[in-house]
Protein backbone atom coordinates (compact mmCIF):
# COMPACT_ATOMS: atom_id res chain seq x y z
CA UNK A 1 0.00 0.00 0.00
CA UNK A 2 1.40 3.38 -1.06
CA UNK A 3 0.83 6.57 0.95
CA UNK A 4 -2.71 8.01 0.33
CA UNK A 5 -3.31 5.49 -2.47
CA UNK A 6 -6.97 5.01 -1.40
CA UNK A 7 -7.82 8.69 -1.74
CA UNK A 8 -5.68 9.45 -4.80
CA UNK A 9 -8.57 10.36 -7.11
CA UNK A 10 -10.18 12.58 -4.45
CA UNK A 11 -6.82 14.30 -3.89
CA UNK A 12 -6.41 14.80 -7.62
CA UNK A 13 -9.86 16.41 -7.85
CA UNK A 14 -9.09 18.73 -4.92
CA UNK A 15 -5.77 19.56 -6.59
CA UNK A 16 -7.77 20.59 -9.70
CA UNK A 17 -10.46 22.55 -7.83
CA UNK A 18 -7.93 24.63 -5.88
CA UNK A 19 -6.14 25.23 -9.20
CA UNK A 20 -9.36 26.92 -10.46
CA UNK A 21 -9.09 29.38 -7.56
CA UNK A 22 -5.41 29.88 -8.34
CA UNK A 23 -6.09 30.61 -12.03
CA UNK A 24 -8.82 33.12 -11.15
CA UNK A 25 -6.73 35.05 -8.66
CA UNK A 26 -3.59 34.84 -10.81
CA UNK A 27 -5.42 36.22 -13.86
CA UNK A 28 -6.94 39.06 -11.80
CA UNK A 29 -3.47 39.84 -10.53
CA UNK A 30 -2.04 39.94 -14.04
CA UNK A 31 -4.76 42.45 -14.97
CA UNK A 32 -3.97 44.57 -11.88
CA UNK A 33 -0.25 44.59 -12.68
CA UNK A 34 -0.95 45.54 -16.31
CA UNK A 35 -3.11 48.44 -14.99
CA UNK A 36 -0.20 49.62 -12.84
CA UNK A 37 2.06 49.55 -15.88
CA UNK A 38 -0.45 51.86 -17.66
CA UNK A 39 -0.41 54.21 -14.65
CA UNK A 40 -3.76 53.21 -13.09
CA UNK A 41 -3.52 52.60 -9.35
CA UNK A 42 -7.12 52.71 -8.16
CA UNK A 43 -7.57 49.04 -7.19
CA UNK A 44 -4.67 48.33 -4.88
CA UNK A 45 -6.81 46.79 -2.13
CA UNK A 46 -8.35 44.26 -4.54
CA UNK A 47 -4.93 43.48 -5.95
CA UNK A 48 -3.55 42.71 -2.48
CA UNK A 49 -6.59 40.54 -1.76
CA UNK A 50 -6.10 38.60 -5.01
CA UNK A 51 -2.42 38.26 -4.15
CA UNK A 52 -3.34 36.73 -0.80
CA UNK A 53 -5.82 34.30 -2.42
CA UNK A 54 -3.25 33.40 -5.07
CA UNK A 55 -0.56 32.75 -2.48
CA UNK A 56 -2.69 30.47 -0.32
CA UNK A 57 -4.29 28.62 -3.25
CA UNK A 58 -0.84 27.93 -4.71
CA UNK A 59 0.43 26.67 -1.36
CA UNK A 60 -2.60 24.37 -0.89
CA UNK A 61 -2.31 23.07 -4.50
CA UNK A 62 1.40 22.44 -3.96
CA UNK A 63 0.87 20.56 -0.70
CA UNK A 64 -1.95 18.39 -2.14
CA UNK A 65 0.26 17.63 -5.16
CA UNK A 66 3.14 16.63 -2.89
CA UNK A 67 0.85 14.36 -0.84
CA UNK A 68 -0.61 12.45 -3.80
CA UNK A 69 2.69 12.23 -5.67
CA UNK A 70 3.77 8.82 -4.21
CA UNK A 71 0.60 7.07 -5.49
CA UNK A 72 1.04 8.69 -8.91
CA UNK A 73 4.73 7.75 -8.99
CA UNK A 74 4.08 4.07 -8.30
CA UNK A 75 0.77 3.38 -10.05
CA UNK A 76 0.84 5.70 -13.05
CA UNK A 77 4.31 6.95 -13.82
CA UNK A 78 6.19 3.70 -13.20
CA UNK A 79 3.68 1.51 -15.04
CA UNK A 80 2.06 3.66 -17.74
CA UNK A 81 4.44 6.53 -18.48
CA UNK A 82 8.10 5.46 -18.01
CA UNK A 83 8.00 2.23 -20.08
CA UNK A 84 5.43 3.24 -22.73
CA UNK A 85 5.45 7.03 -23.22
CA UNK A 86 8.66 8.34 -21.59
CA UNK A 87 8.14 11.80 -23.12
CA UNK A 88 5.10 12.13 -20.82
CA UNK A 89 7.41 11.58 -17.83
CA UNK A 90 9.64 14.33 -19.21
CA UNK A 91 6.70 16.76 -19.34
CA UNK A 92 5.60 15.71 -15.86
CA UNK A 93 9.06 16.06 -14.32
CA UNK A 94 9.36 19.65 -15.58
CA UNK A 95 5.88 20.34 -14.14
CA UNK A 96 7.04 19.17 -10.72
CA UNK A 97 10.36 21.01 -10.77
CA UNK A 98 8.72 24.22 -11.96
CA UNK A 99 6.21 23.84 -9.13
CA UNK A 100 9.00 24.34 -6.61
CA UNK A 101 10.55 27.17 -8.62
CA UNK A 102 7.09 28.77 -8.81
CA UNK A 103 6.88 28.69 -5.03
CA UNK A 104 10.14 30.66 -4.78
CA UNK A 105 8.94 33.14 -7.43
CA UNK A 106 5.64 33.63 -5.65
CA UNK A 107 7.27 34.15 -2.23
CA UNK A 108 9.60 36.78 -3.72
CA UNK A 109 6.77 38.50 -5.59
CA UNK A 110 4.67 38.73 -2.45
CA UNK A 111 7.66 39.93 -0.40
CA UNK A 112 8.48 42.72 -2.87
CA UNK A 113 4.84 43.70 -3.39
CA UNK A 114 4.23 44.15 0.35
CA UNK A 115 7.14 46.54 0.68
CA UNK A 116 6.49 48.86 -2.28
CA UNK A 117 3.93 51.40 -3.34
CA UNK A 118 3.29 50.77 -7.07
CA UNK A 119 2.56 54.44 -7.56
CA UNK A 120 5.86 55.75 -6.24
CA UNK A 121 8.25 52.78 -6.61
CA UNK A 122 7.89 52.43 -10.37
CA UNK A 123 11.35 50.95 -10.98
CA UNK A 124 10.74 48.26 -8.36
CA UNK A 125 7.42 47.54 -10.06
CA UNK A 126 8.93 47.23 -13.55
CA UNK A 127 12.00 45.22 -12.52
CA UNK A 128 10.47 43.30 -9.59
CA UNK A 129 6.73 42.68 -9.57
CA UNK A 130 6.20 42.66 -13.36
CA UNK A 131 8.86 40.07 -14.31
CA UNK A 132 8.00 37.89 -11.29
CA UNK A 133 4.31 38.05 -12.27
CA UNK A 134 5.10 37.06 -15.87
CA UNK A 135 7.48 34.24 -14.87
CA UNK A 136 4.90 32.92 -12.40
CA UNK A 137 2.17 32.95 -15.06
CA UNK A 138 4.37 31.03 -17.52
CA UNK A 139 5.29 28.42 -14.88
CA UNK A 140 1.72 27.92 -13.67
CA UNK A 141 0.16 27.79 -17.16
CA UNK A 142 2.70 25.15 -18.19
CA UNK A 143 1.75 23.16 -15.08
CA UNK A 144 -1.97 23.47 -15.81
CA UNK A 145 -1.78 22.51 -19.49
CA UNK A 146 0.60 19.59 -18.90
CA UNK A 147 -1.30 18.44 -15.79
CA UNK A 148 -4.61 18.32 -17.68
CA UNK A 149 -3.05 16.64 -20.71
CA UNK A 150 -1.34 13.91 -18.66
CA UNK A 151 -4.51 13.29 -16.67
CA UNK A 152 -6.32 12.73 -19.98
CA UNK A 153 -3.65 10.20 -20.97
CA UNK A 154 -3.95 8.35 -17.65
CA UNK A 155 -5.48 9.95 -14.62
CA UNK A 156 -6.85 7.19 -12.42
CA UNK A 157 -5.26 4.26 -10.64
CA UNK A 158 -6.60 1.05 -12.22
Amino acid sequence: MVFLEDVYELGLLLHLFVTFVLVGSMTHNLIHVSRYIRGKFARQKQELLHMKIMFWSYLVTYIIGALIYPAFRVHIRATAFDPVIPWATGLFEVKEHWGTLGLAVLLSWWYIRRSINPETDRTHLFFGCLPLCLIFNVLVWYKIVVGCWLTMLKGAIS
Partner: peptide, 13 residues
Protein backbone atom coordinates in the same frame (compact mmCIF):
# COMPACT_ATOMS: atom_id res chain seq x y z
CA UNK B 1 13.01 48.86 3.14
CA UNK B 2 11.81 48.64 -0.48
CA UNK B 3 15.41 48.35 -1.77
CA UNK B 4 16.44 45.75 0.81
CA UNK B 5 13.36 43.67 0.04
CA UNK B 6 13.93 43.98 -3.71
CA UNK B 7 17.52 42.70 -3.48
CA UNK B 8 16.78 39.92 -0.96
CA UNK B 9 13.73 38.65 -2.90
CA UNK B 10 15.58 38.51 -6.22
CA UNK B 11 18.61 36.84 -4.59
CA UNK B 12 16.25 34.23 -3.14
CA UNK B 13 14.54 33.56 -6.49
Amino acid sequence: QADTTFVVAWVFT
